[in-house]
């Protein structure tokens, strides 16, 4: 006899439960975690390294690198002297909380204050998939164009900070900050917006000040 049974459960329930577990583990160790999302080539690893190096005297930083394949990014971070764990998603387009759980077990948590979780390069899929992070940071680089908040609103909707990277080349690629900002402000009135170049250092201080203040709050 066919019958209907109520389920009333989110498809994301398992992921969210693991994300909560990750968050508690991070909190136990007093670690603040950032979920860093951007397109491929936006400069995520470069900005993470520049940030970790600038804060090295104040905060001990570690990095979880998410990529479909390879360990180039983790090696680059380790070469700079920071703890890093590479996750290969094997085709999956975003990190899931279970992957981060395994990565956390490989990191020296008692020795860390700040953890960057570099998501797979993609502005569509990572949006809304919780990992246990405290803050979501979205980077979009000037060569990608100034229309990203309009084209990928979901990525920007949940952001705690938005960074326009590669500011040093903005003038050469025709990036219009006014257009970008007005598109962003249609999605979020309040999200802090930073423009910077990790390469030249321009604009880095504002971002670092904001991040340190948030880490202290949390």
């Amino acid at each position: 006899m066919p019958k209907t049974i109520e389920v009333k459960q989110s498809v994301f329930a398992d992921n969210n439960a693991l994300a909560e577990k990750n968050r508690s583990l991070l909190d136990q160790h007093g670690i603040v975690a950032l979920n860093v999302m951007a397109s491929p080539g936006a400069g995520k690893t470069t900005l993470i390294l520049a940030t970790a190096e600038a804060l090295a005297l104040r905060l001990r930083c570690g990095v979880i690198e998410g990529d479909v394949a390879g360990d180039l990014d983790a090696r680059r971070v380790e070469a700079a002297g920071f703890s890093a764990v590479q996750i290969n998603t094997g085709g999956s387009c975003h990190l899931r909380a279970g992957m981060v759980e395994r990565a956390l077990s490989e990191l020296p948590l008692p020795e860390l204050d700040l953890l960057f979780i570099e998501n797979v390069g993609n502005l569509v899929c990572p949006a809304g998939v919780r990992l246990g992070e405290h803050l979501c940071v979205v980077i979009s680089s000037t060569p990608e164009g100034d229309d990203k908040p309009t084209k990928y609103p979901a990525a920007f909707r949940g952001a705690d900070a938005v960074i326009v990277s590669k500011w040093d080349v903005a003038q050469y690629v025709g990036f219009d900050m006014g257009r970008y900002e007005s598109a962003l402000r249609r999605i979020s009135s309040a999200v802090p917006l930073f423009r910077l170049s990790a390469k030249t250092g321009e604009g880095m201080q504002e971002w670092l000040d904001w991040l340190v203040a948030r880490v202290q709050e949390l």
């Binding site: 209907t4 109520e6 389920v7 402000r185 249609r186």
Partner: peptide, 21 residues
Amino acid sequence: GEALPMLIQGDEFRVESIDIE
């Protein structure tokens, strides 16, 4: 005119029920 929405619904993906035999 402010974009400060607190989403009440619209971001869910839920299994409400299943029909079984």
